[in-house]
Design a protein around this nucleic acid. Structure first.
Length: 487
RNA sequence: CGGGAUGUAGCGCAGCUUGGUUAGCGCACCUGCUUUGGGAGCAGGGGGUCGCCGGUUCGAAUCCGGCCAUCCCGACCA
């Protein structure tokens, strides 16, 4: 290929987003390709991001009344066949186990692409009365879906996620659950991942296989494309019917439960990379950064001893204050370390040399923020005795700056559009909010001509109706629909 | 499954057109010395069945055929 770099840095984002992303994931040591097509090794730096994400998302599930459990990876093939739309949607992606040792299995087992079916089977046995509802269970698991065009984090054949599965007495209760989680996802994305999301409902053509309604959060990436980052589904009684999840109500009558499911996956790490990164590499939001502040001792020979000792002392104090601090004491030049940690997206960097020690401060540089005339981060003098007190606040401010930057970027590239020519221009750079007739055939025409798909019906926007931007027929939904190109 | 490209050391590449000693370069790695405030220098060193199989030839990384893999662009998707 033409624009490949040597070992220094990555292809600039502005030059080739795809090459930039691929090189960055590898060079920042987030992940590696696995031996089987589409598989991924998550390296410690990348997995730590996942652990931080997992913990903070899990806290939110617990706070909204959910508990964790674990269901099996292998599912009798017959289960997946029970819900017609569900099978149809997943059939092309299913891995099937047909043999153990040299023996053919009497009934093939599928490797879960999602767990509605096994969980549904359990729920049918666990639920018998309205007193058993709602049942609010989540699981953290791996799932497998064959992919034609894999990309690290964004589309791998095996990925990690959480899948919540709940059962309720009626539609109102189930819908309240779906919307609660939809809000949790959006709040989490903004407050933890620093990505302000577009919220809304999927159009029928984009719904989850087997769902009655699907809600999504969509982030805008640095190239203006959308990334679906967390979905919540109302299943109606589709799975309850297929798996006989019935309860007896107050009037002694049998009723089908209304179920929901919702998931967020390791794709969210892809969203973080693509929403915040720049030419120099990753830009990690502080709440997901494995290292929030890296301390780089500077000095040679005997002059190196005092800065190194002070760096460790500072790091220990920061860790005690709840900051993920790290001393880079590798035998490398300072310049190398600066570039290396910028590639890895560490929010704050503290330099500590003999001169700084004498003057009683450290030089702090932000990964994003103001630059000097050489295009490098401005370094701020921070008195050593104020570091521990001030760093947490600096990290919070940094988070807010990231959110603001991401939101401004999205808004700049989002427009209300009512004519076709403007639509074509707008979806080439970002999102177009339009009135649409709601016909899948019309969506398909739009996709064929512009590569844009309906990302979400903007349920929280004002009521509006009029002619479809594409075909002129009466609009559906009573709301605008955001269109964009998607990952 | 279509269209395009690429397979030579961990990574990035040259060599192939026009076959010919021991296959080369940069980075990374190892050893030593000197260095350390924006990707350090010098010296020495280790690492390759040239994607796989077959063919042509006295001789193949190089020519021919087949296969495989990967990447990019389209159809499926969290």
């Amino acid at each position: 290929m033409s624009a490949k770099r040597n070992d220094r840095g990555v292809t600039p984002l502005s030059e080739d987003v795809s090459a930039w992303y691929n090189e960055l994931v590898l060079k920042a040591e987030l992940a590696d390709r696995g031996p089987a097509k589409g598989s991924m090794v998550m390296r410690p730096y990348g997995y730590t991001i996942w652990e931080l994400l997992q913990r903070q998302l899990d806290d939110r599930f617990k706070a909204t009344g959910h508990v964790n459990a674990y269901f099996p990876l292998l599912i009798p093939e017959e289960y997946i066949m029970r819900e017609a739309d569900h099978v149809e949607g997943f059939a092309p992606e299913l891995y099937t186990v047909t043999r153990v040792g040299k023996k053919e299995l009497e009934e093939p087992l599928i490797i879960r692409p999602t767990s509605e079916t096994v969980i549904g089977e359990s729920y049918s046995r666990w639920i018998s009365s309205y007193r058993d509802l709602p049942l609010l269970i989540n699981q953290w698991a791996n799932v497998f879906r064959y992919e034609l065009r894999p990309r690290l984090f964004l589309r791998t054949t095996e990925f990690l996620w959480q899948e919540g599965h709940t059962a309720h007495v009626d539609e109102d209760d189930a819908m309240a659950e779906v919307l609660t989680i939809h809000d949790v996802y959006a709040e989490f994305a903004e407050n933890v991942a620093a990505i302000p999301m577009l919220k809304g409902e999927k159009t029928p053509g984009e719904r989850f296989a087997g769902a009655v309604r699907t809600f999504t959060i969509e982030g805008m990436m640095r190239d203006g494309k959308a990334l679906q980052s967390g979905t919540s589904h109302y299943m109606g009684t589709n799975f309850a019917t297929a798996f006989d999840i019935q309860y007896q109500d107050e009037n002694n009558e049998q009723q089908y439960a209304h179920t929901t499911s919702w998931g967020m996956s390791t794709r969210m790490i892809g969203a973080v990379i693509l929403a915040h990164g720049d030419d120099a590499g990753l830009v990690l939001p502080p709440r997901l950064a494995p290292i929030q502040m890296v301390i780089i001792p500077i000095g040679r020979g005997e002059d190196a001893e005092a800065p190194l000792a002070k760096a460790h002392e500072l790091a220990a104090d920061l860790v005690a204050a709840g900051v993920r601090a790290h001393v880079d004491d590798r035998d490398q030049s300072p310049g190398f370390k600066f570039n290396d940690w910028e590639l890895k997206g560490v929010p704050l960097r503290a330099e500590l040399g003999p001169r700084d020690l004498e003057e009683g401060h450290t030089l702090v540089a932000h990964r994003i923020g103001e630059l000097d005339e050489k295009g490098r981060p401005l370094k701020e003098k921070l008195p050593l005795d104020e570091v521990v007190a001030r760093v947490p606040g600096m990290l919070d401010a940094y988070h807010e700056l990231l959110v603001k930057r991401a939101l401004e970027f999205r808004l700049e590239r989002t427009a209300l559009v009512d004519d076709w020519e403007r639509f074509v221009e707008q979806v080439a750079i970002g999102f177009a909010e339009v009135l649409h007739c709601g016909r899948t055939a019309c969506e398909d025409d739009i996709k064929a001509e512009t590569a844009a798909t309906p990302r979400a019906i903007l349920m929280e926007s004002d009521d509006e109706s009029g002619p479809c931007v594409r075909c002129g027929q009466d609009s559906a939904y009573g709301k605008r629909v955001a269109y964009g190109r998607a990952y």
